[in-house]
Amino acid sequence: MDWDVIPQFLAGGLAIGAVYGLIGVGFSLIYNTSKVINFAQGEFVVYGGLATVSLTAASLPTAVAIPLSLAASVVLGGALQSLLSTARRGSNELTYIMTTIGVAIAMQGLAQHIWGTDFKTFALYSDGTIRLMGATVNYGTITTLLATSTVCALLWVFLYRTMIGKAMRACANDSRAAQTIGIRPRRMVLLAYVASAGIGGLAGILITPSQMMSYDNGVPLAIKGFTAAIVGGLANPFGAVVGGVVLGLLEGLGVGLISSDLQNAYAFLSLLVILLVRPQGLFGRAAAGSAR
């Protein structure tokens, strides 16, 4: 065993992990405001990535293509929430969850018609690497980490420094009390879907250049994002980013040291282990009620 390669595996896992973390943030935002696990979260990632592929292929500059793709994701997120809000009064969580599953299947089917079944990619950054602590880190990794950090910083400012962000947290905490001070919970839920879809779309844009994207990547990406959110504690969106990085590093090591065929299995096993050992996540306070 050549231990020198480990930093390299970790460097590879770091960037992917950051993207998983972003997907997890989306799960966390929606779950906290509406207690729904949005199974269509992975489809936003696919659409964000593939839309950018199409737009750049239509010879739009990436600086234009990316905002357009993000705008498309945001619209899809808003549309999904509007659809869910038509559910009958008194519908339970299972209804919402299964609706998002239906939407995810339909979105995946549509993606196949729009983009076909091939893996696609676009160029976001130039090839090139720097050496860092025994690993060769390419520009892609650096771009991804910078973008993730920026999103986290913006999200933090939004949630902790703006009134509307605080209102969203208040809603997650006690939506009934939030109504008594003039907050409209439905708007906050809509905002959560829009933000989650936008962040998911960005995750797609970040991962497509290095990993390629195809219409059916939504489900594995959703599972990884969800695992990231659970590892970090579903109640805390920033925990999801850390959870994603932990998962990415594990996956990087697993792919490097065991087998790349099992790339999708590591997240699954991590999910089972974390649910078994610490269901509230690394940073969560008993988010999951244990059945007594």
């Binding site: 605080k166 947290r169 208040a170 905490n173 006690d174 009934r176 009390a177 939030a178 008594t180």
Partner: peptide, 10 residues
């Protein structure tokens, strides 16, 4: 509201 309804995590 009854039971105060403060945002306990904030």
């Amino acid at each position: 509201i009854e039971g105060r309804g403060v945002f306990s995590e904030m």
